[in-house]
Design a protein around this nucleic acid. Structure first.
Length: 936
RNA sequence: GCCCGAGUGGUGGAAUGGUAGACGCGGCGGACUCAAAAUCCGUUGGUAGCAAUACCAUGUCGGUUCAAGUCCGACCUCGGGCACCA
């Protein structure tokens, strides 16, 4: 068969017969399958697009045959930076470049036979479409969901342009490599953070894959905690901090304000003014990346002011540091170095006291415990990189030096005394005192349960001078210097193990434990203490429970040309005035220059004819907003437009929206499951709240696919030279071969490398299917011998095509084909069945063969039904195990008597061999599945 | 650092807790051919053995179970996302 001719023939047929047209309002059950629309770049369709489009296409084709009214649309997401860059370089209007690319994309999609309903196609750059994007922006504005705010942006001083975070990756301008700085700019914002809780709750009304839900949850970043008010000592000021660990308030030893915090200049004392000003200035020069990635080392300065800890009235110093972000929480924190890593680092660097208020708990709690205080001392010999241990042999294994604190003795004195007594070493110095641990244990020699508060110490050996050990008779142990590895292997006591962990990696204890040094919280664990502290704060009016979200408002302005113009007008007299709805769309002007201006404004700012207008409110001269919308805007509601794409009165009618109800199945890349999906859900929820869409969530299932990698297992890229062009493959092997291979290559949800050899195997498979036609004889029923495998295959393919098991659907069809091949003859109906099942995957070849057979086109026939009874094998080979090891296989009939199966199993020679001379304890028989004989 | 995901033959990958390696690629041997391509037949996890078969084998180490690639715990490696979010 000649691929090209057949492919074109059927593509033409589908086009002319509008075979895939979705009918809004049809009586058939609607089903909406959506695959992310592409950005029509100059390089054409990627084999990755082909994989996901083919997968959804197969599903759509099958479901149509099953009688669904399937909406499977396609369009183009064509605003954005690449087209603009291309325009700047070549002085072509992006509109023209995009139009050309769309033609290429569409042709490519057609040659692959995707069953999109092309009647519904649009591009986000069509004025008929972006008119409604602008209209929706006006709705946001009308409902006070859009506002102007001054926010810092990435600024390249060389290019004089604002950069997106992506373009400023690594802190340098992507284009010229200049250091990016932060600059304040007035931007349009959408109040997305108001929707944080609804976006979180809404997930319950979706069927998103679990990992997708998690991505959304993480992005929203809800944290429950408390706000606590700190008064500033000696003046009337106060500030509020946010914390998730109000239980550690007794351990707060300082506070930090973000450098941008309003109070900083007010509370800074005279002698610290210069230092603080200098620090603030230095921070303003840093961009986000320097403040985070490049600069984990803590910096900061003291303001000279003190805050009052509301729980104990302690005076604690107030610092400013850029590790506290102005944009999260209240822009101020209480610092608890003992129980927060960042605070710990800062406290160590600035020599601020560390107060432990939580003890980690080890061992098992028991009743009737006797309390005592003790120490664990670790002595380290730097020269030999070894630690001093005591080997109690069978009496207690290997431990460090330990002991009980005597009356009138500090823990440190106790530790020093124990080292001297037990080992004789006398010259050593303290390195660290470690966090206290609350340990439970049972002492066999005393038959008593103990609960001890253990203080750990790390000492460094100075020299080997020793005195005579002062030992009791019954103390039988050896003193041994050992390496870290030996300790990790041989010290099993929980307390000593934990102490060693603290010793080699000092830091904050951030886990749960038992509160100490915390008055009314002492003895409580973390959750209990949080609850109790919240009570205290509220009673004393110095704090309350508070929820915070990482998600911020959406910065909606771009200083770009190629985007939807924001339909707002600035009037000196009236301020920001929205455009009149009837004047939409506000078209992008035709110009020849797309370079941003020197001031970082959009290129639109230079087009005075366009910018200058009149105020819709007072009629005076006014200016248009020259910023445009982000790329995310158009893609936040395109799936709604597909439901009613030609509506000129509304973005989509409520009737159409209600008919289709939701996107039933939405497939896209993992990279879009966080942001795009969140923006789209936010947009929809807003439309729902103002009564314009029927559901709060308009997307039911969201799934994602893996990437198609180059044959070198690397992401395909021109520079790596590993790019596969789908056109070449179609030309050489045919569209159906490419389609089959892309689905067969591997697990659809995982990345998979390209392999042209494997592709050839798929061609072989299709050729085999074609050759089968020579075996066809008359017959309107399935061959008797093939009934079971046919029914099984229908069931399996049907399941797999709706559960992303595309590769196993194809392997099922390969097995069926191989089975057919073994036959002398197959009936016309056998063959028709195979062609029907294969049709969603390889539509051209199967349509052609089907036509030769004399049937009406497959796209107009219905999906075969299977008979559950006939999917079950009458006879099956099952394994026989002895003690879980497979020793033989037997054939069993369906519904065979268990006793008979047992007998057969026991009669197998190899089974006999393995049970010979042994006692049979039991025989497990799962009919039709397994026999396991347990012997002793 | 945190959150996901993944580790199975030479290779892409299959396996509702039940004969691990389906299906495909590649390899090897053979048929057809003057030859090649295409096609067909056989074989193909490792070790030992003529064979029957035995042992080993799903990243590592433990555990649960009659039975673990699959469930639980600890860890290692790779990929992705987030990253001073208090």
């Amino acid at each position: 068969m000649e691929n090209k001719k057949i492919e074109e023939k059927w593509q033409k047929y589908w086009d002319e017969h509008e075979s895939f047209k979705a009918e809004t309002g049809s009586d058939k059950k609607p089903y909406y399958i959506l695959v992310e629309f592409p950005y029509p770049s100059g390089s054409g369709l990627h084999v990755g697009h082909v994989r996901s489009y083919t997968a959804q296409d197969a599903m759509a084709r099958m479901m149509r045959m099953q009688g669904y009214n399937v909406l499977f649309p396609m369009g183009f997401d064509a605003f954005g930076a690449p087209a603009e860059q291309y325009a700047i370089k070549n002085h072509i209007h992006p509109k023209e470049a995009i139009a050309k690319n769309i033609v290429t994309f569409k042709n490519q999609m057609k040659t692959l036979g995707f069953s999109f309903d092309w009647n519904r196609e649009f591009s986000t750059t069509d004025p008929e479409y972006y008119k409604w994007t602008q209209w929706q922006f006006l709705k946001f504005y009308e409902h006070d969901m859009a506002y102007k705010a001054t926010v810092p942006v990435n600024w390249c001083p060389n290019c004089k342009t604002v950069l997106s975070n992506e373009d400023a990756a690594g802190g340098v301008c992507e284009r010229c490599g200049t250091q990016v700085v932060q600059k304040e700019k007035s931007q349009w914002m959408l109040r997305m953070s108001d929707y944080a809780e609804d976006l979180l709750k809404g997930l319950d009304d979706t069927n998103f894959a679990e990992k997708v839900k998690l991505g959304q949850i993480n992005w929203i970043g809800k944290s429950i905690g408390a706000e606590i008010i700190f008064k500033v000592d000696g003046c009337n000021e106060e500030f509020t901090v946010f914390t998730t660990r109000c239980d550690t308030l007794f351990g707060a030893t300082y506070c930090v304000l973000a450098p941008e915090h309003k109070l900083v200049d007010i509370i800074t004392t005279e002698e610290h003014k210069k230092e603080v000003a200098d620090y603030k200035h230095a921070c303003s020069l840093k961009n986000d990346l320097e403040r985070t990635e490049l600069n984990k080392d803590k910096t900061g300065v003291f303001t000279g002011a003190y805050a009052i800890n509301p729980v104990n009235n302690n005076k604690i110093p107030i610092y400013i540091s850029d590790y506290v972000l102005a944009s999260y929480g209240t822009g101020a924190i209480m610092a608890v170095p003992a129980h927060d890593e960042r605070d710990y680092d800062f406290a160590i660097k600035f020599n601020i006291p560390i107060i432990q208020v939580l003890e980690e708990e080890t061992g098992k709690k028991a009743n009737n415990e006797t309390k005592k205080n003790s120490i664990v001392a670790i002595l380290y010999d730097e020269k030999n990189d070894k630690y001093l241990t005591i080997n109690w042999h069978e009496l207690g294994g290997r431990l460090f030096i330990g002991g009980t604190i005597k009356e009138n003795e500090t823990p440190l004195e106790c530790a020093k005394r124990e080292i001297l007594e037990e080992t004789g070493y006398e010259n050593f110095e303290l390195v660290h005192e470690l966090s206290k641990i609350n340990h439970h244990y049972y002492a066999y020699n005393k038959d008593k349960y103990f609960n001890i508060e253990s203080t750990g110490f790390l000492f460094k050996l100075i020299d080997n001078e020793k005195v005579e050990q002062n030992l009791d008779e019954d103390e039988k142990f050896d003193i041994e210097w050992v390496t870290k590895e030996v300790i990790e292997k041989e010290i099993t006591d929980e307390l000593h193990k934990k102490t060693f962990e603290y010793a080699i990696k000092p830091g904050a204890m951030v886990g749960d434990g038992i509160h100490i040094n915390s008055e009314f919280l002492n003895g409580l664990n973390k959750d209990e203490a949080i609850a109790k502290m919240l009570e205290f704060l509220e009673e004393n009016k110095c704090g309350n429970k508070q929820v915070n979200y990482k998600m911020r408002d959406w910065i909606f302005s771009r200083q770009r040309f190629w985007g939807e113009p924001i339909p707002m007008i600035y009037c000196e007299k009236c301020g920001w005035v929205p455009m009149d709805e009837k004047d939409l769309p506000l078209l992008l002007p035709d110009v020849a220059e797309y370079e941003p201006t020197d001031t970082g404004e959009s290129p639109l700012a230079k087009i005075t004819d366009w910018v200058n207008t009149t105020c819709p409110k007072c009629g005076d001269a006014a200016k248009r907003e020259t910023d445009t919308m982000p790329n995310w805007a158009g893609s936040s509601w395109y799936f709604l437009r597909f439901m009613d794409p030609h509506n000129t009165k509304e973005f989509a009618s409520m009737d159409a929206l209600k008919y289709w109800n939701k996107v039933d199945w939405y497939n896209g890349g993992m990279e879009h499951t966080a942001r795009h999906l969140l923006y789209a859900r936010f947009w929809v929820q807003f439309l729902y709240n103002i009564g314009l869409v029927p559901n709060k969530e308009m997307i039911w299932t969201r799934v994602s696919h893996g990437m198609v990698l180059g044959s070198d297992n690397q992401k395909m890229s021109k520079s790596k030279g590993n790019v596969i062009n789908p056109d070449d493959i179609v030309k050489e092997f045919g569209a159906d071969t490419l389609r089959t291979y892309e689905l067969f290559m591997g697990d659809y949800e995982l990345d998979c490398p390209w392999n042209t050899d494997s592709l050839k195997g798929c061609k072989r498979f299709l050729d085999k299917v074609i050759r089968l036609k020579d075996k066809v004889i008359e017959g309107n029923e399935y061959s008797k011998d093939l009934e079971t495998i046919i029914n099984k295959s229908i069931k399996k393919v049907e399941y797999d095509l709706t559960h992303m098991g595309y590769n196993t659907a194809i392997s099922t069809l390969m097995i069926l084909t191989n089975k057919y091949e073994e036959q002398e003859h197959i009936t016309r109906e056998d063959y028709h069945l195979l062609l029907t099942l294969l049709n969603p995957i390889a539509p051209h070849t199967t349509e052609e063969l089907n036509e030769e057979l004399g049937y009406k086109p497959l796209c107009e026939t219905s999906w075969p039904k299977y008979d559950e009874e006939k999917t079950i094998d009458k006879e099956k080979k099952i394994g026989v195990q002895v003690n879980g090891k497979t020793r033989a296989a037997i054939k069993v009939a369906i519904d065979e008597d268990i006793e008979l199966t047992k007998e057969k199993a026991l009669n197998e020679n190899n089974v006999k061999k393995h049970i010979e001379g042994k006692e049979i304890i039991k025989i497990i028989v799962l009919p039709g599945r397994i026999v396991n004989i347990v012997v002793k």
